[in-house]
Computed example of a mutant assay.
Amino acid sequence: MKETLQQLLNNCIEKGSEEELSALAHVLKGFEKKIDHNLPQFIDGLLHLERKIDQEKKICEITVPLNPVWNNALGIVHGGITATLLDTVMGTAIHAILPEGYGAVTNQLNIHYIAPGIGDTLKCKAEIIHHGNKTVVISGEAFRSDGRKIAHATGTFFIIKK
Rank of each mutant, 00 (worst) to 15 (best):
M1Y: 11
E3V: 11
L5D: 11
L9D: 05
N10V: 07
N11E: 15
I13A: 14
G16L: 01
G16E: 03
S17K: 09
S17H: 06
S17F: 09
E18Q: 11
E19I: 09
E19L: 12
L21Y: 05
S22A: 13
S22K: 12
A23W: 10
L24D: 03
G30H: 03
F31P: 05
K33Y: 10
K34D: 06
I35F: 11
D36T: 10
D36Q: 15
H37Q: 15
N38G: 10
L39V: 05
L39F: 04
F42Q: 12
I43N: 07
G45H: 02
H48V: 05
L49M: 14
K52H: 13
K52L: 08
I53W: 06
D54H: 09
Q55P: 12
E56N: 13
K57N: 14
K58E: 13
L66C: 01
N67G: 00
W70G: 01
N71M: 09
N72G: 11
A73V: 14
A73Y: 10
L74F: 12
L74S: 10
I76A: 11
H78Y: 11
G79H: 03
G80L: 00
G80V: 02
G80E: 07
T82P: 03
A83T: 08
A83W: 06
T84A: 12
T84F: 02
T84R: 03
T84Y: 03
L85M: 05
L86C: 06
T88I: 01
V89W: 07
M90C: 09
T92P: 02
A93V: 08
I94A: 04
H95F: 14
A96I: 07
A96F: 06
E100K: 10
E100R: 09
G101R: 00
G101M: 02
G101I: 06
V105Q: 03
V105Y: 02
T106V: 07
T106I: 05
Q108W: 04
L109Y: 04
L109K: 06
N110H: 11
N110K: 14
H112S: 13
H112E: 15
A115M: 14
A115R: 15
G117L: 05
I118H: 01
T121Y: 10
T121C: 08
K123H: 12
C124R: 00
A126C: 01
I128L: 09
I129N: 09
H131R: 14
H131P: 01
H131S: 11
G132M: 07
G132C: 00
N133G: 11
T135A: 08
V136F: 04
V137D: 13
V137P: 00
I138P: 00
I138Q: 08
S139I: 10
E141Q: 11
F143I: 08
R144L: 00
S145M: 02
S145L: 01
G147A: 01
R148G: 06
A151G: 04
T154A: 04
I160E: 05
I160Y: 06
I160D: 02
K161M: 05
K161P: 02
K162Q: 12
